[in-house]
Computed example of a mutant assay.
Amino acid sequence: MLKGKDFFILTTNQDTQFVKLYPEEKVAEIQGDHRFFQCAACCTDDTWDAVKPVADMVAAMGDGTRIPTELIPKYPHCGGEAFPWVRGYGNFLQGKKYEEQYEKISRYVLERKEHKILFLELGVGRITPMFIQEPFWNLTHSFPHARYIAINNKYDFLPKQLEDKGMTIVADIGKVLQDARFVMTENEEVTSHA
Rank of each mutant, 00 (worst) to 15 (best):
H115F: 14
M61G: 12
E188R: 07
T168R: 05
K104D: 06
Q38P: 09
A194F: 12
T191F: 15
A180G: 08
L71F: 03
E29T: 02
D56Y: 05
T11Q: 02
L122H: 00
I72D: 02
I127V: 02
M1E: 15
E70G: 06
E99H: 04
Y102R: 12
T12L: 07
F36N: 00
F83W: 00
K26M: 09
G32T: 11
P135I: 14
R126N: 15
A59W: 04
Q31S: 08
T11M: 04
V183M: 11
T128E: 11
I117R: 08
K113S: 12
L120H: 08
G125H: 04
L71H: 03
L162H: 08
A82I: 10
P129W: 03
G64F: 04
E25H: 04
R107D: 15
T47C: 10
E186V: 15
S106T: 09
I117N: 10
R66L: 06
I169Q: 05
I9S: 00
F36E: 03
V86G: 02
P159H: 13
T140L: 00
L177Q: 07
I169Y: 00
P159L: 08
T69K: 13
L110C: 13
P84Q: 01
L122M: 08
T12P: 12
I117W: 08
F92S: 13
F92K: 06
I169K: 07
Q101F: 06
A28S: 13
K74T: 05
F143C: 07
V86A: 07
L122G: 05
I151T: 00
V58C: 13
I173V: 11
K96D: 09
L110G: 09
Y102T: 09
L158W: 10
V170K: 13
K20L: 12
H34G: 15
V109R: 11
S142M: 13
A59C: 14
I72M: 01
L162I: 03
Y155G: 00
F7C: 07
E100T: 06
F36C: 14
F157G: 15
K26V: 02
N187P: 03
A28N: 00
I169D: 04
M61N: 11
I105H: 12
H115I: 07
L71V: 05
L21K: 12
G32D: 02
H77G: 07
K74L: 08
F131T: 05
I127R: 01
T191A: 15
P135K: 10
K175W: 13
M1N: 01
E111R: 10
I105S: 00
